[in-house]
Design a protein around this nucleic acid. Structure first.
Lengths: 189, 189
DNA sequence: AATTATACATACAGGTCTGTATAGTTTCAA
DNA sequence: TTGAAACTATACAGACCTGTATGTATAATT
């Protein structure tokens, strides 16, 4: 039986390094050194750096989305309130000292080729986020729910990108204010 | 007198490769090979890859912003119409076959360290874009111009990021529709 | 005609990268 | 207690990276 804690340890260290430095900038040797593990142990658990990266992306999606959605749902209890809470949770994320930007935006930036497995992974995971917002929209009565969902999604990605670029602590607030206006405008009554 | 056409040639080839592949993924040897130039010629004009990259970022800012602003200004002749034209021009950009995403978002993604010269360059150049939108807003009469400008800027970055990730040809349209609603809402009358 | 600037080709230094080979050690269950 | 699975340390292959060294060709300038 493989020692799962070693595999976890490697993946945890690798994820931190990928987040902080980027994927190309992080070598296997550094992962091995900081994991305090033999190189062959890494290659026993992950047959290549590629597989390690894919495991990182998958885990990142699970962890971030789990945290994000449960934070939203914990904050508010109706779909409409949750649509606004999305931006409060974004603000919480930005303010966290370990914030390193969105792993998927960064990974797509590093591997722009649309047929690259990393890029395909980022696409898969980002669609899930978009769908989450769309579902929240569809659970209320809005005119043109598709248009509203798209706009709210753009505000999410915009806030993430703007915060990464400028560390403007009000990014999330500005997005929330804009979202509130849009939501009001799409109300079906 | 230095043969400027060689320097131009190198910078042009390097810019294309940086845009398509990323900075870390593009080696000096590839730039030299595709420029059809001797390696020492590159190092005569650019003392290091770093300087070449900084020249690329500077030129990218000039070229893109020049194209973007003149496209906006050519399309419409009042500040308020231009605020919406911004998103039409974005759509034009996305639809271009040579579109490779925003060089600054990608560069910031590759070099997250805020004290890195590349990251600092992206910050400088992105602030100019934000200021351009703010100026357009301030040339009309809006309630809370700062809030409107921030929201419109977030929609710009959101559309760019969303298109990079999902190639959704309607990103720019969705952003424009949302912008129109926000502009209407901030009108001071 | 001599000097200077520019570009050329080739080779190489010294470092990084991913991945493998090898051999010895720990762990743990049958 | 024996034996297999897991982990260790070290070394290395082969490819890549940035940057330099060397010597030559060419063309404009002085």
């Amino acid at each position: 039986m493989v020692n799962k804690s070693k595999k976890e340890q490697i993946l945890r260290v690798a994820s931190n390094l990928f987040n902080k430095q980027g994927i190309r900038a992080t070598g296997v040797d550094q992962v091995v050194a900081e994991s305090q593990v033999a190189k062959m142990t890494l290659y026993n658990h992950f047959p290549s750096k590629d597989k390690l990266v894919l495991a990182y992306l998958e885990r990142q999606d699970e962890q971030w989305r789990g945290w994000f959605q449960s934070s939203v749902e914990q904050r508010e209890d109706t779909p409409q309130k949750r649509l606004l809470a999305v931006y409060d949770v974004l603000g919480e994320w930005f303010a966290a000292p370990e914030f390193t930007g969105c792993a998927f935006i960064k990974t797509a930036s590093e591997y722009l080729d649309h047929s690259h497995p990393y890029f395909e992974a980022t696409q898969r995971y980002k669609i899930i986020l978009k769908n989450y917002i769309r579902e929240l929209v569809e659970q209320s009565d809005f005119k043109k729910p598709e248009a509203l969902a798209s706009a709210l999604y753009l505000l999410v990605e915009g806030a993430i990108t703007a915060y990464m670029l400028q560390s403007d602590t009000e990014s999330a607030d500005h997005a929330k204010n804009a979202a509130a206006i849009l939501i009001q405008n799409f109300k079906d009554n």
